[in-house]
Write a protein that binds this DNA or RNA. Structure first.
Lengths: 273, 273
DNA sequence: TAAAAAGTATTAAATAATAATACAAGCTGA
DNA sequence: TCAGCTTGTATTATTATTTAATACTTTTTA
């Protein structure tokens, strides 16, 4: 059993501008992700929600009920179990539709995906993780790995490596300092020194190439989307799979494609202003 | 009002289990979608949030601040404007990863998208709208039309038509009764009678084909994903564009593809139980 | 079938959210 | 540059809203 699941309660401070109830509602929603990850459950009972969210029975009851009323959770009247509702996708849309990067990137990603018929992703940094924001899935991979909103520790993902490589030093240090270096696959590089080396190399090359770092059989390539100061605010990432692809083939074909796509997105993004 | 005199005006029941603050927080998040749609804004000032959410200045301040603390909104310190943060994608992931339909559908959608190199979507009913849940984008369409979480009134989308056609009568009536029949394009069928006719036809055919109903130049085809009672709980939808495609070509090639894909998903979903 | 566990409903108490307001900081146009 | 305006931020007293405890009901289990 994995110890070290950080059970940190946030310190909102004695802030009169902070509404604690909102946090608790989100804690309930987060419980479902944890329930799926740790217990493999896709619906939860009230007491499971209570355990996973850290809220007591009454609070779980109130917030669960509220979220059902609002349409963000569904309740099975027979089993009395709760599950996330489609309406939760509203927020993803809200984020993406307000995001000019997504707008500029989408056509480039589609183009890129057609070159070799590969999956192409856009990802961004969020805390110590990267989050996949746009995905053009072409291969039938491990299901979870194909979903938008997926999080992976930045240090273990090629997208994270190139973003960190082209980030301000303080951001880099902060992320590496707070990262939890647990292996994702048996080949994941978890030694902080080795991670730093990989980041340096990515900075030199302008891309990163990782073999089976976050998924078995996967060769992952990524290049940064840079702003005018040469700092990254996103990454284009293409995964391909062995044995269909070899590292040599990836270097020859995927690396240029990823770099060119990232460069094009950057160019379009800063084209008008 | 006298202190110490406690009139029990509050009706016991769901009221005490409803946390209004949660609703207000979501109202703030919704404001961004409205701001983008109605004003074309991708970030909002505090007063704009106040207007769009219907919350007063103080409430907007408190909930905005709370959402920033939690990482769901970002604040530009210079412009003092707020925008949705990547973290919002967490909920989309939560929904999708807990959803066996998505898991079963994804590989089928990918396969289908390769047959003619078209976009393929999965959608579900949410109130009077459909929401696109999984998307395999292949064409460079109108940006917003490519995003997961996009909502369209069910009556105007072929995915909505086929789901409604294969829904219980009371669901159908409820949706049609509450729908707001505004035209999406200039060709949108908005007459409730005509919509009902289209639904009947879709029930007979097992698919729907709509021309420029929700996007110019678009020919949209959809087929329902059915449960064991023959009721729909989702739809597979494929959009193609004129003049590259004609209605005749769509009937010949896309219709069978959409129907077979939907059927396959349904089959896989109920394969084990 | 009894006992335990989980889910639901109710309520008194008080915390935590509210709305009012004061203050500060940016804008606008003269 | 300066009023005058709008918008954003900070601070309060007040109370309504949330809370936690608990009683009650249903379901699961042993």
């Amino acid at each position: 059993m994995e110890a070290g699941l950080q059970e940190k309660r946030r310190k909102p401070g004695p802030d009169t501008l902070y509404v604690g109830s909102v946090e608790k509602a989100f804690d309930v929603l987060k419980a479902f992700r944890a329930g799926q990850r740790d217990l493999g459950l896709s619906d939860l009972s009230l007491s499971q929600i209570s355990h996973l969210s850290g809220l007591d029975k009454s609070a779980s009851q109130r917030f669960t009920n509220t979220l059902v009323e609002l349409g963000y959770l569904e309740k099975d009247r027979r089993t009395r179990r709760y599950r996330p509702a489609v309406r939760l996708l509203d927020f993803a849309y809200t984020y993406l539709v307000c995001n000019r990067l997504a707008e500029v990137a989408m056509p480039r990603l589609i183009e890129a995906s057609k070159v070799y018929g590969t999956t192409v992703n856009l990802c961004e940094l969020s805390g110590t993780d990267i989050i996949y924001t746009l995905r053009i899935p072409h291969q039938k991979e491990y299901f979870r790995a194909t979903l938008p909103g997926r999080r992976i520790p930045a240090f273990s993902a090629s997208g994270g490596i190139v973003i960190l490589a082209h980030s301000p030093a303080d951001t880099l240090d902060l992320v590496l300092e707070h990262s939890e270096y647990r292996p994702i696959t048996q080949w994941t590089v978890t030694d902080p020194q080795a991670v730093r080396a990989r980041i340096s190399e990515a900075l030199g090359n302008g891309y990163d190439l990782g073999v089976q770092q976050s998924l078995p059989h996967e060769i992952s390539t990524a290049a940064p989307v840079l702003n005018s100061e040469g700092k990254a605010f996103a990454a284009v990432q293409i995964p391909v799979y062995m044995p269909g692809w070899t590292v040599e083939q990836v270097r020859e074909k995927i690396v240029p494609l990823v770099m060119e796509t990232a460069r094009a997105i950057s160019g379009s993004y800063f084209a008008e202003g």
